[in-house]
Nucleic acid binder design. Sequence first.
DNA 1: CGAATAGTGTCTTTTAGACACTATCGG
DNA 2: CCGATAGTGTCTAAAAGACACTATTCG
Lengths: 245, 245
Amino acid sequence: MGYKPKGSMQQTEKQFIENYDIHQYDVPLTMVDMAIFSIIDNKLNVLLVERNIFPEKGKLALPGGFIDKNKDSDLEATALRKLKQKTGVKLSYLEQVESVGNATRDPRGWSVTILYFALIDSAKLNKKLMSRSYWHPVDEVKHIALAFDHNLLVQKAVARLRSKTLYTALPMALLPEKFTLTELQTIFEIILSRKLPVKSFRRRMMDAGVVEATNESKISGKRKARLYKSTGIKKDFYFPRPLQA
Amino acid sequence: MGYKPKGSMQQTEKQFIENYDIHQYDVPLTMVDMAIFSIIDNKLNVLLVERNIFPEKGKLALPGGFIDKNKDSDLEATALRKLKQKTGVKLSYLEQVESVGNATRDPRGWSVTILYFALIDSAKLNKKLMSRSYWHPVDEVKHIALAFDHNLLVQKAVARLRSKTLYTALPMALLPEKFTLTELQTIFEIILSRKLPVKSFRRRMMDAGVVEATNESKISGKRKARLYKSTGIKKDFYFPRPLQA
DNA sequence: CGAATAGTGTCTTTTAGACACTATCGG
DNA sequence: CCGATAGTGTCTAAAAGACACTATTCG
């Protein structure tokens, strides 16, 4: 493919860049929103923030906001900055879900949001949230009119989390470093809203080597249960077969 | 959750929106790029366009460009408009891959691109392309310095196509309406760069009901082969187990 | 010991891979 | 009938589900 750029330029590229002014173009708004999940009281919860500025002032919304060209080196940096600014919590997992952009989702005009989803380990939940931030069970969010199209965004993020739960061991990120297999299974069951067979679940986790036994035990119910920890298997590990949908 | 917005607004939302001027903000560039794939000469090809404007003038790039707030109702509309404008071909499949945004990918400044990937049925390839559009085998693209970070974008799109090929029957979209199972298998093998076991492949497609036999046959080699067509199973069908990676 | 929770043994089911086999067609 | 391509029969292997079973601890 002996391809090479052609010559004969009227203007140099350098000149072009210097004269380039984004403000002469009619650009869309571009922002980042985050669906941050945690398990509270045996329910999957998502973090919502009460908006205190227009538009949609007073409504609940996903944490998020505009890209700051000076502060953010990339989209993930925007997500992390917004997270810190609005919640002060530390993440266990962050992944881009998808982007939604159209003419009608924001009254300020054509806008694009890049949606991220994040998981927080329940051990870190002691820290208090910033003001106007509240955890809401995702099952109840559908009955609240969120700002903009954020009900849809929550749905998309939950769908991604469920899908990953069928194929991977990602929900470990919702637990502290050491956990029992029963605790892990419970988290899976909460996310999927159904019971899983005990034997299958344990075999799946052990055989794939995503968890490793520690020497410690923990007693929460009647009998001691062994504590396990993640083997730190790489984030992109997929089980050979999904859990049955 | 008896949540409801609080009152006592200094300014009305309507006033806020009317006074809102995006140009007072330092916003990033936002655009859509597309990785359009087709099979040519038993190779997976991607469509590239020679840029005839700054920046990166003369280099090859994925088809794409800025959102037009007046013409496009949503991101997919931008993708389809760019496609038509630059190639004039009709798509079999379109899906968002992911968004990439950072301060350095475009010399004009902080920019975000929403990447789509598309498949074109080889029967539609007779139509001639717009000028300066060329099909390139994806294996060779890694040796060409594309504009911006488009080498990376091609890689991401190819990875998505390969992943979908392991889990779904998506590659049917690269074939005309009627095809033999051998032809379909060949397409899979091209995308995955490896041979697949014949018996497994046919059983997988038939048992899942993603293809349906027609009464017609086709003779291309030594023996007639039955023609099949897609059962139009929904786009989000996943086989119970992936092909072995 | 009984109740409750943790954890296992083992059979079946599903679906992929291996691979030898049969079928059909042109020359 | 030979060679090549299309297509099948059937065994094995991997991993999930079903479900009865055993193990440990507290009171």
